[in-house]
């Protein structure tokens, strides 16, 4: 089966600094890959590179069947990235932010309400993003990501800022995403929690990947 993500000898420079230095990685459909490693190891850059937000300087990068060295835009409608910030607009309400993202992605507007319900944001649907707490903004970013119906979900420290209820909801969402056949790449420092959700862990050190780099056939989710 063709991997959803296939990276070979990837080098990515941020200015003159090699944020990724010869990285290899495969991820198959339905896998939940945990990216671990210290600060500055390259986890965020790797997720942004897979999303097409930063350029590949050398190496082979194929994501969702597209060669990112030639085209890093056309696969974006099939993925979602939840980064450190919500990528939302302060003066739009929770519902309006989700509606905008869903309509832009060409998905059905009906899924926006479902996503808000799933993340426990329905009571805040008419509250402006600028009035939400940090944790509520994280939930909103996740709701938008799910509402877009992505094949590939990229999550950068998704548990950060969430309360206990939010973390539990996130864990359920990750489990459901994997069961739906979505590929999840998850960068996190909360290893005790996320290892239980992941099918595989890849450790990044100074822009290189170590550990189980290749997708294993028919991975079995390891959950608590």
């Amino acid at each position: 089966m063709q991997p959803v993500v296939r990276l070979r000898s990837i080098v990515c420079l941020l200015g003159r600094f090699p944020a990724l230095a010869g990285l290899d990685l495969d991820a198959a459909a339905g896998e939940v890959v945990l990216l671990s490693g210290g600060n500055g190891a390259g986890k965020t850059t790797l997720l942004r590179l897979i999303a097409g937000l930063v350029a590949v300087h050398s190496g082979e990068a194929e994501v969702l069947g597209r060669d990112l060295t030639r085209d890093r835009r056309s696969h974006r409608r099939e993925l979602a990235l939840v980064g450190h910030e919500s990528a939302c607009y302060d003066d739009l309400t929770t519902r309006e932010n989700v509606d905008f993202a869903v309509r832009a992605a060409g998905a059905s507007p009906d899924v926006a309400a479902d996503a808000l319900e799933q993340l426990g944001l329905a009571p805040l649907a008419d509250v402006a993003h600028g009035r939400l707490s940090t944790g509520q903004r994280r939930r909103l970013a996740l709701a938008i990501a799910l509402a877009r119906g992505p094949k590939l979900l990229l999550l950068d420290e998704p548990h950060a800022g969430l309360d206990a209820e939010g973390r539990a909801v996130l864990d359920e969402v990750l489990a459901a995403a994997s069961e739906d056949g979505r590929t999840v790449l998850l960068a996190s420092h909360e290893l005790d929690r996320t290892r239980a959700l992941a099918t595989r862990e890849v450790v990044l050190t100074a822009g290189r990947a170590h550990g189980s780099l290749a997708a294993e056939p028919q991975p079995e989710p390891a959950r608590q």
């Binding site: 937000l53 979602a80 450190h84 939302c88 302060d90």
Partner: peptide
């Protein structure tokens, strides 16, 4: 530029 909305716009598929 606020809350990295530009990244959201780039990833929107528009």
């Amino acid at each position: 530029t606020e809350h990295a909305a530009r990244d959201g716009l780039r990833l929107s598929g528009l």
